[in-house]
Design a binder for these strands. Structure first.
Length: 455
RNA sequence: GGCCCUGUCGUCUAGCCCGGUCUAGGACAUUAGAUUCUCAUUCUAAGAACACGGGUUCGAAUCCCGUCGGGGCUGCCA
């Protein structure tokens, strides 16, 4: 039987990086086994689901390159099916109507907690006339006296067991026509013939309930694998208050390949730490996915991102940085020191005149007049520079070096020159910058610096 | 509170199943050094962990028991 997996996010918020990681592992698993990876929008909560969020999910996955097979499906379009099956369970006595109010249920829960009893609603309407009267919510009839252990063999955690008696008669429909999450996912997964349910660890305790639904419906139970969660640095669940958590929040700074790489190695140890999702798919083994949650370490993401940025061609870089007009010669200078794409603007001096205080031109213990005479010497050299020559960079460096040797201190020449070109205390080698911006611009900037010192 | 998952450097982890080769390896981060006008890159080096307590054993990160910590679920959310 061929593998069929799915990602089933609910469109009630922006696509979270944790969901994206889950999507990646589903994608890898499908890829590895030549199976199918589907995208299903779980919009059973019509109050909170929006088209905008659905669009965001699609955009996020597309950006990451996690393409799905076939058309997107939606729970909302499966409503008639839920209604029919809910009706079937109701008529078979496997489900019933619960007429308790939310206040009553809440009071029950509170007293159970106070008495250190397991929290569950064993509904008094289950076997009574009331349970057959339409109205109220629909619950699955679960035998609370059973000593059955509901178990499943998690593909990464091994056998997980729950006592059925602790479950209570849990809800499966807001009404006979309106399915709740547990019921909807089970029906959807069964209808789509999903073979492996790969989802977050937060669903482990939902699994026994869903198994009971599969059984009540007479559907085959798929295999389950519960993936570890992503944590914030304080080890709590990663959420908005920890900064960026929506996939598209990362778009302005990170390459999708880097994010995918990061998400991949965060829950799995591959042979290499730097690899594409295609590489990952080759060696992916579901049983080797880590069991414990990992902290989302932005430092490692930054490092990975810098590695991917270094591999970019000039054209690619200009496109992803959204700066199509910067000179090609500037790109290698930027790429070598970039961690986040949006930091490219720190290198604006490569295409714009810098602005700085004249005092910055002063080299260590030397004074400003030393800077002025050094710049005058540099100006002369620059003026005579054969910038069109194939060896222009070496040529300039050599003449500058000999001037520096004469003065006995390289910094005396290079420091003011670099400041004149970049206007910054920390910046790349001035010879490289001069080559990137061209002889004319370099001369202009040196002249501007000389002028600054004069006033 | 109840149930479930989980616990090796600051972080991600290798090793654990099949005890000795582990004075616990790698990566990111940090610190120091080399190159160097500054930054960055690159290279070299250093510090840094088996949650705790029992037990089994000649020997335990590895096996057993307990404790503690972290997380999830406990919804007419998903």
């Amino acid at each position: 039987m061929s593998v069929k997996v799915r990602l089933a996010p609910s469109p009630t918020g922006f696509l979270h990086v944790g969901t994206a990681q889950s999507g990646l592992y589903n994608w890898l698993f499908a890829r590895k086994h030549s199976g199918k990876f589907y995208l299903r929008i779980e919009d059973t909560d019509r109050e909170r689901s929006t088209k905008e969020y659905e669009q965001n999910i699609v955009e996020s996955l597309t950006w990451l390159g996690l393409t799905w097979d076939g058309e997107i499906t939606r729970s909302s379009s499966n409503q008639p099916r839920y209604q029919a099956l809910l009706g079937k369970l109701l008529s078979e006595g496997k489900a019933f109507y619960c007429h308790h109010t939310q206040e009553e249920l809440e009071a029950e829960r509170k007293s159970q907690e106070a008495e250190k009893l397991p929290p569950r609603h064993v509904c008094g309407h289950k076997h009574s006339e009331k349970g057959r009267e339409a109205g109220g919510i629909v619950r699955l009839a679960v035998d609370e006296a059973s000593d059955r252990i509901i178990s499943f063999d998690d593909e990464l955690r091994g056998r997980v067991e729950f006592k059925q008696a602790l479950l209570g008669d849990f809800s499966i429909g807001r009404s006979a026509a309106d399915a709740l999450y547990h019921f909807a996912v089970v029906v959807d997964d069964a209808d789509m013939e999903i073979t492996h349910v790969l989802r977050g660890e937060d669903h482990i305790s939902n699994t026994p309930k869903q198994i009971l639904i599969y059984e009540a419906l007479g559907f085959p139970v798929p295999k389950f694998a519960h993936l570890p969660l992503l944590l914030a640095p304080d080890r709590s669940k990663l959420s908005k208050r920890h900064g960026a958590t929506a996939v598209l929040d990362f778009k302005k700074d990170y390459l999708p390949e880097a994010l995918v790489n990061f998400l991949g190695i965060l829950g799995y140890t591959f042979n290499s730490e730097l690899l594409t999702k295609e590489d990952m798919a080759k060696e992916f083994d579901l049983a080797k996915v880590h069991k414990s949650s990992a902290v989302f370490d932005i430092q490692k993401l930054n490092w990975l991102n810098s590695q991917y940025i270094k591999k970019l061609s000039s054209a690619e870089f200009k496109r992803v940085a959204e700066l199509p007009h910067i000179p090609d010669a500037a790109v290698p200078i930027i790429i070598e020191r970039l961690e986040k794409l949006s930091d490219t603007r720190d290198f604006a001096y490569l295409w714009e005149k810098p602005d700085y205080d004249a005092g910055l031109l002063k080299w260590k213990k030397a004074d400003l007049s030393a800077a002025a005479s050094a710049l005058a010497a540099v100006r002369k050299i620059l003026d005579a520079w054969q910038a069109e020559d194939a060896d222009a960079e070496i040529l300039l460096r050599n003449t500058l070096d000999s001037a520096a040797t004469e003065l006995g201190d390289r910094g005396l020449v290079y420091w003011p020159f670099r400041v004149a070109l970049t206007g910054k205390e920390k910046s790349p080698d001035p010879v490289q910058v001069a080559c990137a911006i061209g002889k004319g611009a370099a001369l202009e900037r040196v002249d501007a610096a000389i002028e600054k010192l004069r006033t």
